[in-house]
């Protein structure tokens, strides 16, 4: 160990040319690299944030369709939002990978999916344990949903709003 350190010291701190040692050269080059790395780090984070914002702006543009909770929120002991925006392929469930995550124990990990086809929205149940109902009718195959339809999953009840239809 001791010997290795001495060798290191000798390599980096002995004069090469005109009083310059290897350490000085390395440190002088690295100082530029450090600034570049940290600046790039900042840029990366700003890009991530930008991506979020852009996604938001897009979903705002597509904000014609959303589901609105009609239960009182404080009757649940898990967080749930008032409004979720809906697009083609939006999934709802308990698992982390869903577009809409609600931690309701009555929901399946992957519970239901919205499908947009030829300008119409369909609701599909993904073989959930407790099922999905549309206007109190169980959904066993992809069913078209229209403005102001009521979707029930577990105890949750949402009203489907499609402003394009209005």
């Amino acid at each position: 160990m001791q010997k290795a350190l001495e060798t290191l010291e000798k390599i980096f701190f002995s004069d090469l040319i005109g009083g310059l040692d290897l350490y000085t050269i390395v440190a002088s080059v690295l100082k530029f690299i450090f600034v570049i790395i940290v600046l790039y780090f900042v840029v990366t984070i700003v890009r991530m944030i930008y991506l979020d914002i852009r996604q938001t702006v897009r979903s705002t543009a597509a904000a014609n369709t959303y589901i609105k909770l009609i239960n009182r929120r404080d009757q649940f002991d898990f967080p749930v939002r008032e409004i979720y925006y809906v697009d083609d392929g939006t999934t709802i469930g308990r698992g982390k990978g869903n577009s809409i995550v609600v931690n309701d124990p009555r929901l399946s990990k992957q519970h239901a999916r919205f499908i947009l086809s030829e300008g119409r929205f369909y609701l599909e149940d993904l073989n959930s344990t407790n099922g999905t109902r549309l206007n109190e009718i169980p959904v066993d195959q992809p069913t078209e949903i229209r403005n102001r339809d009521i979707i029930s999953l577990g105890l949750l009840e949402f009203m489907f709003i499609n402003r394009g239809e209005q």
């Binding site: 944030i49 979020d52 914002i53 996604q55 938001t56 702006v57 897009r58 979903s59 705002t60 904000a63 014609n64 959303y66 609105k68 939002r81 008032e82 409004i83 979720y84 925006y85 809409i100 009203m159 709003i161 402003r163």
Partner: peptide
Amino acid sequence: LWANWADEGDWAKRSGSGAEEV
């Protein structure tokens, strides 16, 4: 205020979206 701002909502870009029409 509590609309789902996609994954990470942005404060600046929202105005006049759906909620009031419900």
